[in-house]
Computed example of a mutant assay.
Amino acid sequence: MAKIPTKETIKRRTISDMKALGVHKPQYNRLIDIYSELVFQYLKLNDEFESEGYKYETYTAAGGAKKSPIVATLENLRKDILAYSDRLCLNPKAIENVTAEKKDKSKLASVLSSLE
């Protein structure tokens, strides 16, 4: 079992990834907080699921089998993480549809690039 990163570590990495992709703005930080919490919960629950031996079914009082609650929770977290990663442009499909804003060049940079 690997060490699970903290929510703050996940948040810092997410912001770093978004900056590298050119899609980060400080206004997105509340969404990034939620996304980071979801990823942290997913990693923690997945670790617990692994340590319990991947028990994906539980038995009902009637004798039937149903999906384990932890499996249902992991599935819901995956869907939520995917939705947030789309909004934050952190997956290939979402980034295809976004044009990152490019900062204007300074006057000096414009003059220097025209000399080339």
Results as ranks from 00 to 15, higher is better:
I81K: 02
L82N: 13
L82H: 13
L82M: 09
L82R: 08
L82D: 14
L82K: 09
A83T: 11
A83F: 12
A83K: 03
A83H: 10
Y84S: 00
Y84E: 01
S85W: 00
S85R: 02
D86W: 08
D86C: 13
D86G: 13
R87W: 00
R87S: 15
R87K: 15
R87L: 15
R87F: 08
L88E: 08
L88G: 09
L88A: 08
L88Y: 07
L88M: 11
L88R: 01
L88N: 02
C89A: 12
C89Q: 03
C89K: 05
C89P: 00
C89R: 03
L90T: 03
L90P: 03
L90R: 03
N91I: 06
N91V: 04
N91C: 10
N91S: 06
N91H: 07
N91P: 08
N91F: 07
P92E: 14
P92W: 07
P92L: 05
K93A: 13
K93P: 00
K93D: 14
K93Q: 12
K93E: 14
K93M: 04
A94G: 06
A94L: 01
A94T: 05
I95S: 08
E96I: 12
E96D: 13
E96P: 05
E96K: 14
E96C: 11
N97I: 05
N97F: 10
V98Y: 14
V98Q: 04
V98E: 09
V98K: 12
V98T: 10
V98F: 14
V98S: 01
V98M: 06
V98N: 02
T99S: 13
T99W: 03
T99L: 09
A100Q: 10
A100Y: 07
E101M: 03
E101G: 06
K102A: 09
K102L: 11
K102N: 08
K102E: 12
K103A: 15
K103S: 14
K103P: 08
D104K: 10
D104E: 15
D104Q: 11
D104L: 14
D104P: 04
K105I: 09
K105C: 04
K105H: 04
S106W: 07
S106L: 06
S106Y: 06
S106R: 05
K107H: 06
K107Y: 04
K107P: 02
K107E: 15
L108E: 14
L108K: 11
L108G: 01
L108W: 00
A109K: 11
A109R: 07
S110L: 15
S110P: 00
S110A: 14
V111D: 13
V111G: 01
L112M: 12
L112Q: 09
L112N: 14
L112Y: 06
S113D: 15
S113E: 15
S113T: 06
S113V: 10
S113N: 08
S114E: 15
S114G: 10
S114R: 13
L115M: 15
L115W: 12
E116P: 01
E116D: 12
E116T: 06
E116W: 00
E116M: 05
E116C: 01
